[in-house]
């Protein structure tokens, strides 16, 4: 994927934080957020941080397999984050209860597998507050 963030920034470029609260399998919301994120980067705006909360943490699952004729939304998020060097944080308390763990959490809880895409980090709500203080806009997708 080409980096959308390489697009020259418009003079009115804004910094956005997007809060994603819905699982990719349960509603259209995470797909709406993904399309919104792609468009805002194409338009020259910046993403300060993506924050996945509640069921939204399932968007960071590297173990999701979709039928071939359906979009794999977690894989699409991963590609967008990687291609554009975005900051992406998954709420730790939402994540571990849903089986979304990285290497550190797997070791801490003595689990035998990891399930979080390496493009996202597992963190806390403080990182959402920090991002909001550096953002011009925050949009929530449920």
């Amino acid at each position: 994927m080409t980096s959308l963030a390489d697009t020259p920034k418009a003079p009115g470029a804004l910094r956005y934080t997007l809060l994603i609260n819905a699982a990719p399998q349960s509603s259209q919301a995470s797909k709406s957020a993904l399309r919104f994120a792609e468009s805002l980067l194409q338009m020259g705006h910046n993403i300060e941080r993506l924050f996945f909360y509640g069921d939204g943490v399932l968007n960071a699952s590297s173990l999701t397999v979709m039928p071939q004729d359906e979009i794999n939304i977690p894989a699409a998020w991963h590609a967008l984050i990687e291609a554009n060097g975005l900051s992406s944080v998954v709420c730790v308390s939402s994540a571990i209860r849903r089986g979304i763990v990285d290497t550190a959490e797997a070791q801490r809880h003595e689990l035998y597998a990891t399930s979080c895409f390496t493009s996202s980090e597992i963190g806390g709500l403080g990182q959402l507050i920090e991002a909001l203080s550096n953002s011009d806009r925050m949009l929530s997708f449920g």
């Binding site: 009115g12 804004l14 919104f36 468009s39 194409q42 338009m43 806009r137 925050m138 449920g142």
Partner: peptide
């Protein structure tokens, strides 16, 4: 379209999501 949605979010200083 979605780009228009982004433009609206840039125009208005705050957003409220109803879901």
């Amino acid at each position: 379209d979605t780009r228009g949605f982004v433009a609206l979010s840039a125009r208005l200083p705050r957003s409220v999501s109803w879901y």
